[in-house]
Design a protein around this nucleic acid. Sequence first.
DNA 1: CAAAGCGACTAACACGGGTTACTAGATCGT
DNA 2: ACGATCTAGTAACCCGTGTTAGTCGCTTTG
Lengths: 338, 338
Amino acid sequence: MPPQSERRRITSKDVALAAGVSRTTVSFVLNERADVAIPDSTRQRVWAAASKLGYAPSPEARALRLGRSDVVLCLLPDWPITGPVGVLLEALSAELALAGLTMLSHQRQAADELGQVLAALTPTAIVAMCDLAEVEVELAEQRGIQVVSFMGRVPKQVDVACFTQADVGRLQVRAVVADRGHSFIGYVSPYDRKLDWFSAPRLAGARQEARQLGARLIHYRLPARDNGSTGKWLETARAKGMTAVCAYNDDVAFSLLMAAFERGLSVPDDLSLIGVDDSAFTTLTRPTLSSIGFRLGPEAKRLTAVILGDGQDVQESSPSDIFDLKVRDSLAMRRPAG
Amino acid sequence: MPPQSERRRITSKDVALAAGVSRTTVSFVLNERADVAIPDSTRQRVWAAASKLGYAPSPEARALRLGRSDVVLCLLPDWPITGPVGVLLEALSAELALAGLTMLSHQRQAADELGQVLAALTPTAIVAMCDLAEVEVELAEQRGIQVVSFMGRVPKQVDVACFTQADVGRLQVRAVVADRGHSFIGYVSPYDRKLDWFSAPRLAGARQEARQLGARLIHYRLPARDNGSTGKWLETARAKGMTAVCAYNDDVAFSLLMAAFERGLSVPDDLSLIGVDDSAFTTLTRPTLSSIGFRLGPEAKRLTAVILGDGQDVQESSPSDIFDLKVRDSLAMRRPAG
DNA sequence: CAAAGCGACTAACACGGGTTACTAGATCGT
DNA sequence: ACGATCTAGTAACCCGTGTTAGTCGCTTTG
């Protein structure tokens, strides 16, 4: 007994047979080539056959022949994507879909893992939101894959993002020092070292801006398990004259808020506080948390333009278009006499 | 002037040429076929040539020839993946990599978008963490793609997860009613309707368990912008005798904590409170938030086994292995006389 | 000493699509 | 009437693999 017509993939050959034409004609019709003369009657016959059979061309065969696929690979760092970056990814995916491209993400785990991924698929472009080694970039370029860096450190590549993490730190410091007169401030980093990738440049930016504005900045890192040491630090620093703190993000800001509360320090009377991300809960805390939000929609558009190669038409945007300073209760002017 | 040796892809033909053998031999050697007789001297020549040229086979050509690719596609819902599910994804990706498979994720946006994705690549399996339409499943099966449902509603498919969202709601209610004697409780859903996919079955599970245990349950949904209405609801319900609240997740629990605080309701004295996810900030709030954590490592292993087709060897696990009830300050026994 | 067996390899095909070069017939211009 | 152009289509090749069916020379064996 022969295998009872085991479900085979439907190819353009089947369509050709059903429509009574050659495979070539099917290809011409389905790709809507305007430069070949094929009467409407034939065109309709082919379309009808294709849709009746549920024909869809094999992506692999296409990619093989055309030398490129319709996939854009987004390489993500190995910490959870949340907040504004998550929104950006959604926007980017939608934007690319409009151009007929499919975005797929891969969360990178090891350092030199790109080879494994490229052994499974050849994307048309790679958006690197994490660091890449030089070997990896060469690997991609060797295969003719465009590498675009967005918020990642990639050798031989200019980052496409119109802002840096350092800008985030600078903006925080500006809001606190330039706009509200504080002159002795703190910067607090999260416990998780994985986040240093973001956190280190933010701190550096904050430091730079503080120096430029003539303010003093001290750095503190949250401990793994807080046994009151953060509160103690806040108290000591406050006693020495620190009147404002910039937090790596809203989560860290929240920890600080709680630590201050336990020590009887008042926010913002004793300490001003600002986070990053404009997380949903910032309006729920008492006092409400000031933060820096992001409008990343335009960035998704720019990124797509770069990938599509309309390199020239990309309109420049500036960090000020992106950042969205949310001033809430946790920010106050420095009081005239300490 | 001819194109100055424009960087071409290195194929097995190049390797064959360099090693002085045929393409067939190259294929045999590189795929380490034991059933063909090839002396070590030749094998080494081929390996040397391949690594010197930096040869890597074309994934598309392989997939075309073999009829399957090394990609496992993970379909995600259109809300941000965070917390335990994010951890699961990482574990799954690592587990699949061990088996030589590459996991790629796609966050689904429209309802019937799978066609677009399958036009860009043919994965060997699809892990659906979201709902799929029947058409979509058929689309995949027609192409010989295995569809595995994990925490998703997929027609004609049994979910692989050893627990349901309803179990989460049940466990919350049990912790509050069975273990702590409360008999009139609330369940609070988040504002975002996107989350109903998770939230609705959790509520249903909570309702069922409450009915079974003879407790009364009332439902409330957070408003878009809270103008004190949540606090008002808490107060009214408390007055009617509600003594405990199960929240959809820790974020919602936090909102409730704040609303209670503003109304002068004490947690846990007036109201017990429990969330879901065991988020990092649960230990920072005062009182600390009780929650349900997840240990999803074993699930990643099971999922991988199913994908690899070792269907039989998969050891069953039970929800109790997965859930991790974290009892903290926000939970208290119901006081004997209301 | 011829036939069989074995080691070491290779020519040729298949996978499924896009594209180039070509053909057979109809129409047009002069 | 006859070459030139146009219409409608097709055979054949190419992309880069993996695999099947041989080939060729050498050794073994009855």
